[in-house]
């Protein structure tokens, strides 16, 4: 092995000793580094290779098979990208990507300095992750919820949960064909679907009246949506079953995300376009409250779910 290769292996040896979960957290945090800030590509590639090698040695089925994926690529994805857009076309064109990639090729001096700073950040993230995992896991299990069930993550523009847990059994689904049902209350709806988890606020802000409660029975999941209305505003409460861990990505603005804990569950409060949004997961449900209400009203709604 050349000296250069040996130095790289020495520099990254600590990643070989980390668990896959820890390495994935580093990659996840790297994926959220804003445009314009660089990460240590060599370190990231090394981590990616470690995870990939472990998967090849002990397959868990977490990744699609490469040969199947290649056939799918030729069949399903090789339509022209000449229009300049990704499959998801909001804001990113090929030119933007090209400019970012071009900007990442620097002179050797700048590369060395940047990589030192970037690697320092990755090393710090790794150290913090190990500490949080060591402390957090025991505490989380003692508190009654699974830290590795759903992990909340957010950027300036989006909020979502990621799941590493095994899928939970689906609640009763009367129809397989995506039917819709109406109910007179959200309580009636959760009772109909035998949902035993506390998910429904018992308190609604003054001035709001219930307009409708609809259940959409999808193939593999059910969605409940309750709509309330005041003189000028709407309030929506949604309960989505997520047996396969398919959570939604929620749009948010640049305001901070606050956490309100109740019923051994963390509820994330954020804003988007002048409206308040509360999002949380419990068991295999993802719930949300969306409306022009105050933080105090949101917290009161949350507490009322658990009898507070």
């Amino acid at each position: 092995m050349s000296d250069l290769g040996k130095n790289k292996n020495d520099r990254f040896a600590m990643f070989d000793r980390m668990s896959t979960v820890e390495l994935e957290e580093i990659l996840r945090q790297d994926s959220e580094i804003p445009s314009g800030e660089e990460s240590d590509i060599d370190a990231i590639l090394y981590i990616m290779e470690v995870i990939a090698r472990r998967e090849k040695e002990n397959p868990t089925g977490r990744f699609c098979d490469v040969h199947t994926a290649w056939e799918s690529f030729k069949r399903d994805y090789s339509f022209s990208a000449d229009d300049g857009y990704s499959i998801y076309d909001d804001g990113i064109t090929l030119d933007v990507i090209e400019n970012k990639n071009a900007a990442s090729v620097k002179d050797p001096t700048h590369v060395r300095r940047t990589r030192f700073r970037s690697f320092g950040r990755i090393a710090s993230i790794a150290a913090v992750i190990v500490l949080v995992i060591a402390l957090g896991t025991a505490t989380a299990y003692a508190a009654g919820f699974d830290l590795w069930g759903f992990i909340a993550e957010w950027t300036r523009e989006t909020f979502s949960f990621t799941s590493s847990a095994e899928p939970l059994p689906q609640v009763n689904q009367s129809s397989e064909n995506g039917e819709r049902k109406s109910f007179s209350s959200l309580e009636e709806a959760v009772s109909y679907y035998d949902i035993s988890e506390p998910l429904v606020p018992a308190w609604i802000p003054k001035g709001y009246s219930l307009i409708s409660v609809e259940a959409a029975e999808g193939l593999g999941n059910n969605n409940l949506i309750a709509s309330y209305r005041s003189e000028s505003e709407e309030l929506i409460i949604s309960i989505a079953e997520i047996p396969n861990g398919h959570t939604s990505v929620h749009e948010k603005d640049g305001g901070k995300v606050t956490v309100h804990k109740a019923g051994n569950t963390e509820h994330y409060i954020m804003t988007n376009e002048g409206r308040l949004k509360v999002v949380w997961t419990r068991s295999n449900f993802e719930c949300a409250i969306n409306g022009k209400i105050s933080i105090e009203e949101a917290q009161k709604m949350i507490d009322s779910i658990y009898g507070g």
Binding site: E32, Y88, V96, T155, H250, E251, K252
Partner: peptide
């Protein structure tokens, strides 16, 4: 990385 950020942003929208 940019595809992922775009995916999250677009799906949220």
């Amino acid at each position: 990385k940019y595809v992922i950020q775009n995916t999250k942003r677009s799906r949220a929208r």
